[in-house]
Amino acid sequence: MSGLIYPKFFPILNDKVVIVTGAAMGMGEATAKLFAAAGAKVLCADHNEEEGRRTVDEIVKAGGTATFQFTEIANSSDVQAMVKAAVDIYGHLDGAVNNAAHIQDDKRAWDFDEDYWDELEAVNIKGTAMCMKYEIQQMIKQGNGGSIVNVSSINSVRPKDFSVAYTSSKHAVMGMTKVASMEAGQYNIRVSCLAPGGINTPMLRDAVVKVGKKVTELGGMSRLGRIGEPEEIAMGNLFLISDMSTYVTGTTLFVDGGHSVL
């Protein structure tokens, strides 16, 4: 299903300003492109400058509006600069998809790499939390509400081998989402979580190679007999960011082909 053709959306995100982290490839790239097609002004944040700028170039060539911002989400000053850039360039901030993350481990629970654990948790947990922190601060300052999506994983409820650090981080993302939704709701700021299943991304392809498998062997990860495509995650993100979900907050949307109920 690679290269899905998007439905002809009415401009459901017209004039909204949205940050997408991890926008250089995979689910983040697909999300940034879909949001731009739906009328948003997208700030594409990533530490992969070459691929991030390619995403922006492709959006602009297709008639959309986007800007690249180099961002290491584990670095507080980069995260603050990311939010500031969105506001400086486009005037305000309406939404954010905090998608950037490190890939899963390649060690058993009794043999994990402690340095890699620290690196992964700094990005997946603290980095996501810092994105929320400064995005919410800006939205409170504006006084117009907003919507934030933190990308978790099917691993949060159906963990796999070789993923102790990754699984713990994705549990944490779901927990911090619930806390933030409780606290920010009074400002009409919605904070939700999207949990992808097996998705055909460079991250998944790299991860399965590390444990001696192939992406084509992962069809059993869903009720549909196949893994998902990045564009299918983008559709879920669109729902949670847009005004189609104005009464949705604090929850997790599983976009996993039914894997969570297997």
Results as ranks from 00 to 15, higher is better:
1 M>H: 02
8 K>T: 14
8 K>G: 14
9 F>L: 15
9 F>V: 08
13 L>S: 12
15 D>I: 08
17 V>D: 06
17 V>E: 10
19 I>S: 03
23 A>K: 07
26 G>A: 07
30 A>T: 03
35 F>N: 04
36 A>V: 12
40 A>Q: 05
43 L>W: 09
44 C>S: 07
45 A>T: 06
47 H>M: 12
49 E>Q: 09
52 G>V: 04
56 V>N: 02
57 D>E: 07
62 A>M: 07
65 T>N: 13
66 A>V: 09
68 F>L: 01
69 Q>R: 15
77 S>I: 06
77 S>Q: 10
79 V>L: 02
80 Q>K: 14
81 A>V: 07
83 V>F: 05
84 K>S: 09
88 D>P: 09
88 D>C: 05
92 H>N: 12
93 L>N: 05
95 G>N: 14
99 N>C: 13
101 A>H: 04
103 I>F: 08
104 Q>G: 15
108 R>C: 09
108 R>H: 15
109 A>Y: 15
117 W>Q: 08
121 E>M: 14
121 E>S: 13
123 V>S: 13
129 A>C: 10
129 A>V: 11
139 M>H: 05
139 M>A: 04
139 M>P: 12
143 G>Y: 04
146 G>C: 02
147 S>I: 02
148 I>Q: 01
157 V>R: 00
157 V>C: 03
158 R>Q: 00
160 K>F: 03
167 T>D: 01
168 S>N: 00
169 S>N: 02
174 M>D: 13
176 M>H: 06
176 M>V: 08
177 T>Y: 11
185 G>W: 11
193 C>V: 06
195 A>T: 06
209 V>C: 01
212 G>V: 05
219 G>A: 00
222 S>N: 02
224 L>T: 08
231 E>R: 15
236 G>Y: 13
239 F>S: 09
240 L>F: 09
241 I>P: 15
242 S>V: 05
243 D>Q: 14
245 S>Q: 09
252 T>D: 04
255 V>A: 06
256 D>N: 04
256 D>W: 00
259 H>L: 03
